[in-house]
Design a binder for these strands. Structure first.
Lengths: 234, 234
DNA sequence: CCGCATCCGAATAGATACTG
DNA sequence: CAGTATCTATTCGGATGCGG
């Protein structure tokens, strides 16, 4: 169901893959909808709650267009009382590396948390997947668990391959507990894990070597950091 | 100069890497400007010519904002008579994999060439870089040359690493000659190289084995197959 | 309530004329 | 050539309405 083009829609009218991609994805809110669905199917109301400011008509329009374009489909997720959810088709799933790449790239531009900013735990967790240092993955099989506000995620490293997932780990080698804003700030390099711990926004439990391996996996400077001097005063 | 935010600009106000990225890149035309600059510095007038429909005010606004954001900079390219060009900063260059990925993804959505569509040779060539099959690169060092309308590009394979570049190759193992629309159509899988040759839109010269290696590098079905996907109307 | 459709003021985009 | 300035068209954002 590709090349829909839904008559009347604005288009760049360029015979080019990028222009065609942007004819589908380039409008406001569209890629943020994709972001929400990268972690699994969601219902209309859930999307509305995690996209503050979108306006109900725009969300409905975008969902309809993306379904027509073959990027999303509607599914009946077991246990949601027969109400339909939206999920990515294989074509939509193929956007994962580009969306994650953009999420990682954009961390350079996140500033201080302002009063009007919203935060969600799973936004930070998306960036985690984009931060993997594929050349520095330890051969040890283990899991790291992250309690971010009221949501729980984990990284499972198995056979040299890390994977992110929702929910707790049965036997985590490390458990991190923090709030969503701190989680994003650490990913953006605006604060180091050590700085966040000293400030009381991050709690780390478990094997100290597992903590260090987790930091290395994510390319994070575990503790040292630009603030080394500031902290040494203690 | 990150986290500029240029006061008054519309923002998603989400504390999230993707939302921040889209606050910088998400407006209309912006990623197409990045696309143009991925192949080297360009001047205002050149950008205007390759972005039909943009309007002079929008191009000026976008360029100014991207320079302020640290994605672009102005440079004096030798030989352009002291007039300034725009080029990507390292931050902007970091977008290459995501932009190429989107260009490749979007090939699924390019339809038939319509009367109002514009085409440029270098648009097709951008996708070429995104089509490399990194697991199927031959160990043979050689170059493939592409004459697309009035522009010439090449792929240099050296030490198992392919690289794209502008301009002719001194000793090409294969030379392909075609028009821009056919070039895009082949990349999109709407036509095979063999079909284009039979139709007279593509001419291939040089070593037949080099031609096959080039097709394999790009994941193209050299000739066989009526291409099952080619005629999926609706 | 949830899942939209409609309406309207505000913000963006497009087209064109103009300037250093 | 490289942009401004200005005006019109389109899209967005927020409020409201409505059927199930």
């Amino acid at each position: 169901m590709a090349q829909t083009g839904l008559a009347g829609k604005r288009s760049y009218h360029q015979y080019c893959g990028l222009a065609s991609a942007l004819d589908v994805l380039g409008e406001r809110w569209t890629l943020l909808i994709i972001r929400e669905l990268l972690m699994g199917p969601r219902r209309y109301g859930e999307l509305l709650a995690d996209l503050p400011g979108i306006g109900t008509n725009l969300l409905a329009d975008r969902l309809k267009f993306l379904v027509d374009s073959g990027v999303l489909r509607q599914v009946d997720v077991h246990g949601t009382g027969g109400r339909l959810s939206y999920e990515l088709t294989p074509t939509g799933q193929a956007l994962r590396p580009m969306v994650l790449g953009l999420a990682h790239w954009g961390l350079e531009f996140v500033g201080d948390l302002k009063a009007e900013d919203t935060v969600r735990p799973h936004w930070g967790f998306l960036a985690v997947e984009a931060m993997f240092q594929w050349d520095k993955i330890s051969p040890i099989d283990e899991s790291y668990q992250f309690q971010v506000d009221d949501e729980v995620f984990r990284i499972d490293v198995a056979g040299g391959v890390p994977r992110v997932a929702k929910g707790p780990s049965e036997n985590a080698a490390m458990v991190a507990t923090t709030d969503a804003a701190t989680f994003v700030r650490i990913g953006a390099g605006r604060v180091t894990p050590l700085m966040a711990m000293v400030g009381g926004q991050l709690k780390l439990e478990g094997d100290i070597d597992a903590v260090l391996r987790c930091c290395e996996l994510l390319g994070l400077d575990a503790g040292a950091a630009p603030a080394a001097q500031a902290v040494s005063g203690h």
